[in-house]
Design a protein around this nucleic acid. Sequence first.
RNA 1: GGCGCGGUAGCCAAGUGGUAAGGCCGAGCUCUGCAAAAGCUCUAUUCGGCGGUUCGAUUCCGCCCCGCGCCUCCA
Length: 484
Amino acid sequence: MPIQLYDSLTRKLKPLAPSQPDGVFRFYNCGPTVYAPAHIGNFRTFVINDVLRRLLELEFGKDKVRHVRNLTDVDDRTIGQTQKEKRPLAEITKKWTDHFHADCAALNCLPPHHEPTATGYIREQVDMIQVLMEKGNAYRAADGSVYFKVSSFADYGRLSRVRERELLVTDATADSDHKNSVSDFALWKAYKPEEDGDVKWPGPRGAGEGRPGWHIECSAMSKALLGDTIDLHTGGVDLLFPHHENEIAQSQCCNGKTFSNHWYHSEHLLVDGTTMSKSKGNYYTLGDLVAKGYSPMAVRYALLLLGHPRKQLNFTLDSMHAAQKALERIYAAMDRAGKDAGLAPGDFLRLPQADTSGIKQLTQANPFHRCWLSLCGDLNTPSALGEFFAGIHAFETHGVPAQFIKGELSLALTILWVFGIGLVKPSALQANAPVAITALAQKRWVAKQTKDFASADALRKELAAAGWSMLDGKDGYKLEPVKK
RNA sequence: GGCGCGGUAGCCAAGUGGUAAGGCCGAGCUCUGCAAAAGCUCUAUUCGGCGGUUCGAUUCCGCCCCGCGCCUCCA
C-alpha cells in the first residue's frame, strides 16, 4: 500500500511517489530560525517530519530518500538579536544551531541529508532574484530593495486561496516602504546601517548591498540541492501563507516548472488550550520539560502520538504524564516479549529496529501491520499507536509461538523505529539517586535479605521521608522519587 | 470581516452508513514479609443541540450553540 498523505494544494489525500527517473524521493522541510531556543511547538513539526522521513525510507529504501531541512540564519529576528546582544551574527546563529541540534538528537530525530543555511546560499539566491528581475517578475525599489511583483504570477494564491481571503490591511502592511502593491514581497532587502550592523552582501545587478528576503532562501536552496521540481514540501500551517505561497511564485516564475508535487502542513501545538507565548507563561522548550523530570523520549511521544498531525494538539503537563507512563509500559512489554523470545533481559535493545522484511507482507490480521497501514494512511499516528498497544496486549495475554515471536518482536521494533521511539532500558528513565540514598537502600536490601523486616521497614520509612521510594524486585531494587 | 479546524467516557484520542480502537486516571483481582512494580478484568446503551435523508447516522445534509487557529516575515 503506497503512503497516502494529505496535499494542501489539492486538499485531497494523494499517494507519495518519486517523480524523477532515479527513483529518489525529494523532500524539503522548512526548518527553524536560529536566534533562540526552539520551543516544543516547533519540535512537533520537526518530529512529525522525522516520522514521515522514516516512513519514506522504509517505503522507498534508505538511499532513495533525500531530506533537506534548512536553517534560517539571516532575517529580521536573527539580525535583531545581534543588535540586542552586540555580538556578531555568526556567533549567535552558531550557538542556537548547536542548541537545536542537541535538542533534535535528544528527541531522536534523524539528521536531514542536507541542512543548508541561508548565508551559505547567498549566491544562489542573488542569481535567482536576477532571473526574476530579467523576466519581469521582480522590480527594484527606490531604496535598492527588490520586490516580487505578485500581479505577474497568475497562479498566485492557489495554495492559500488568498484570492478568497479578505485582506486585513493593518498599519504594518499599509506603510510598506517602497512596494508598488501591498501584496508584493521582498526578495532582497537594502542594507540599513543603523539596523543591520555589518550584515550585508553585494546584491543582484541593479540593486544595492543588502540581504535576501526570507522566502527566497527556500526556493534557492531547494533548487540547488533537489532540483527544480521536488516531490514534497512541508512545514507548519503558519507557513502556508505567505511563505509557501511566495516560494511557489518565486520558483515557478524562475524555473518555469512545478515547484513541488505535494504540499503537507502539520497543525499547531497549543498549550493549555491556547497559543504558546512567553507572556502567558505557557511557553516550553525541551529543556524546560526535562527540568521538570520528563524524558525527551516522552516529550517526543507526547508531541507525536497523542494527536493527529493535521489537528491542533493541546499540550498539558497532564498529557506529559500520560506520555511518560505509556512509554514505560511499552518498554516493559518489549523487554518481556524479548524474554519470551529467549533473549536475556535488555537484549531486545540489540535487535535490528528498521528491518522491513516482514512489515509489508503481513496480513491485516496482524496488529503491527495495522500500525503500518495507519501510518501509510495520512500519517495517522494516534491510530497507529492504538494498534500498537493492541499488539502488545496480544503479546501479554495470548502469547506468541516461540519460533514466531522474534519475528513479531522485530515488527514491533520496526514500528517503534518509525515512531522514532528510541529504545532505552526502562531504568534509564529513572532519576539518579544521591549517594546517601543509595547507601540507605543498600542497607535495607541487606536487612531484607537477612529477614530483618523490622529494620527493613524502618529504612523504607527513612527513604520515604527523604523523598525516595524503593521498589523491590526478585534480584534487586530500583529507586524512584516519591510520587506526589 | 475573511479563511480554516474542532466539539466522542474524569482527561487525551482514533474511527466508521449497520450499531464506539487505544492511552492516562480510577476500581477489583493475581503476585508479594511490607510497599511497589508488572499483568489481567472492569469503566460511553452513546459520539455538542435541533431537524432532515435513510431500513438504519456518531458517521451524509441543513440550521443553531460552544471552543480554537490564521489573515505578510510565527513550526
